[in-house]
Structures are given as structure tokens and as C-alpha cells.
Amino acid sequence: MKHAEMIKLGISIGDLNGIGSEIVLRTFDDTRMLDFCTPIIFASSKIINFLKKHYKLSLHFQGIDHPSKAIDGKINVMNVWKENVKINFGEEDTTVGEYAFKSLEAATSALKNDDIDVLVTAPINKHTIQSEKFNFPGHTDYLAKELGGDSLMFMITDNLKIGLFTDHVALKDIASVITPELIEKKISIIQQTLKQDFRVEKPKIAVLGINPHSGDHGVIGKEDEEILKPTIQKIRDKGDLVFGPYSADSFFGSKNYKNFDAVVASYHDQGLIPFKTLSFGRGVNFTAGLSKVRTSPDHGTAFEIAGKNEANINSFKEAVFKAIEIFKAREEYKVLTENPLKKQGRKI
């Protein structure tokens, strides 16, 4: 478990025409952030210098050619490329998308090789980043392929955690994608991440229905009766605290979510609309189920305000703090599972 060394926090710069670079640099323009981690931004010194001047920031950084050269107490810029990149804030640009991928690819490689401890990703444009090397609907699927494991989009705050059975899946395909096997796999990932990453010994999980009113006993669709309910019961028969399906329209307004450690939504907007409404811009996207820790802010590139120095940095800052907290919790969990008597307060 890391004590003497600072946690090395890698950052992929995202789409340079969006707000990603602004939220990254403005977060670490506050030098107090350097007390919590050693940031390593995967980009280039040239581009960071341009952005520093554009946003009129006072931050000081040093360019490095390998994460091992990073210095604690400094902002480190890993030079992934040396050439100039033309930035046109607010515009979609496939060339800029290529550099977003170069940053992500280098940061992911460093994470795989333990050259960094955690990864925080700035927003990408899911259209312009597409290429032969990146043919994924988003970060989550790419990282699952590179790092191995079954990934799950897990939206988190201190008081609300929402996982998804399906994330970037077209609405018309949802019902056919949600199978008993998928339900069991996703709930298992959530249970494990609550234990190892959030220190919840016996997780209590709520599941939202697929159809309006959870199908009203089959009147509005049969998926809840035929797929969700029997699978949830099968999981409960094993002794796990999993409940539902609950009608999604009233679940959050009634504050029922406060009775659970996590909630599982059937599809993207069913979970993210209430999450973003309740999290007030401080939510974090955590990729659960992977061997490494990756977080990101809960928003996109926001081209409409890019380059204007108007972006809210709160979600990105929270993503930094959550990555650090999860890394420490996971290291602690490893110690406890390797030495179970420590959990009981006994000396080994």
C-alpha cells in the first residue's frame, strides 16, 4: 500500500476542441491539489503551454519523456507528441480526435504497465475519435478491451451510486440485450466493487424495471416478469441483498434510493437523468470491474462553451479525488483479504 510515495495520477487530455483541457488545467492551477497526487498529463508541452496562455493561468509544469521521471509536487506533462496541433474550440475535427486517442492510448499503456496508479479521462468526442484503433462507443469499452475484465459504467457520488445493465445501447435494443446472464454478471460486478472499492461489507442493491411501472404484471411488457424478477430472486436465494424491480418513475422522487448502497438502471438515460439531476455537477463516472482504477467527469466535451473559460471544474475535481480514494480502498481491501485477521483488529 502506498504511503511514502505519492499516487501517480495519469490524465488523458480528451478532445482538445472541448472543455477537457480547461477543466484539467484549472483544477491543477490550484497548487493545493498537488498535496493529494502527482498529476501526469498525457499530451505535449507545446499544447499545454498554448492552453495555459489562452486561459491566463499561472500554473507551472515540466515536460517529461516517461512517467517514471514525474516529480512530486509538480504538474508533469508526458510528451506523447511533439508537433503542433491546431485547436479550433467548439468544432468537431477528426485530426483533433486522433490526438485525443494518442493521449488515451499512451495513458492506458502507462496504466497497464503500472507506470501510473490511476487514470482520469477528460471527455472525448465519440464521433471524431473513431478510427481503426478506436472502434468503440466510448472509453468504457476501450478500457475493458485493453485492461481485461467485465466493465460496468458506475456513476457515483458519496450518497448515490448508479450502475447500468446497458450503457451505450440503442433504446430499441434494450429488452433483447438484458438477459439473465447479463443481470447476474453486472450485479456481481457491483457487489464486488462496493466491497473492495467502497468498503461496503454486505451491499444492498435496488434494481429498476425495464418497462414503465415495471411492466404492471405483464400489461406493459413481459420482460420484468419473465427476466428481471426470476433472476433477482435467484440472486436473493444465494443470500445476496438485491431487490426489485422498482418502478423507475417514482423511485428517486420518493427518495427510496437512500435505502440502498447502489441502484441498477436498465438503460443509460433511466439511470443518468436522475443521477445528473441529483448530483448537482459533482458526479463521477467510475469504470467498475477492471483491474485498474479509472474515473472521469460526468459530462461531455461541451463544445458550446469550449475555450470561453466558463466550464465548471467540480466534476473533474471530484473524479480526481474519487480515483485516489478508490485506489486507497482497493489497496486496503487487498491487505485485508490476504490477512483476514487484520479485519478483526488482531495483530498478525
Rank of each mutant, 00 (worst) to 15 (best):
D115I: 07
G244L: 03
F327H: 01
I227L: 01
E325A: 14
V24W: 08
K186H: 02
K229H: 04
P230Y: 03
Q270V: 04
P137Q: 06
L290K: 03
N309Y: 09
L59Y: 06
F165H: 00
H54T: 10
I23G: 00
H139C: 06
W81F: 13
I273E: 10
G218S: 07
K343C: 12
T231E: 01
S296V: 15
R282I: 13
Y142L: 09
D29E: 15
P230D: 04
T277V: 14
I11H: 01
I156H: 03
I324G: 03
Y55W: 10
M155I: 15
H139D: 09
A262K: 01
A248T: 00
R282L: 14
E181A: 08
S291P: 11
Q62E: 03
N135D: 15
D216G: 03
D150Q: 14
N211T: 08
G289F: 10
D158H: 06
A306Y: 04
D117W: 06
F42L: 03
R26D: 14
V284W: 05
L208N: 10
N312G: 13
G253W: 10
I210R: 06
S131M: 10
D224P: 03
Q344A: 15
G163M: 05
I220A: 11
S21L: 10
S131T: 01
I313W: 02
G283W: 02
T166C: 09
P180Q: 07
E22A: 04
G307S: 10
I178Q: 03
K82R: 01
F50N: 13
F252I: 07
V169I: 06
S109I: 06
T193F: 13
V284S: 05
Y246R: 09
M33A: 14
K334M: 14
E105N: 11
M155D: 12
F280D: 14
D117N: 14
I183A: 02
P212I: 05
H66I: 03
G345K: 01
A170L: 05
I174D: 07
F252L: 09
K133I: 14
E22M: 06
I273T: 15
A170T: 11
M6Y: 02
G97K: 00
E91N: 12
S58F: 07
P340R: 02
I71M: 11
D93V: 04
P230N: 01
V284H: 09
I187T: 08
S247N: 13
D167F: 05
K202E: 15
R294T: 11
L25S: 12
T295R: 00
F252G: 07
K86A: 12
L182Y: 02
T38I: 08
H66S: 10
I48Y: 00
F321H: 09
R32V: 15
L336F: 13
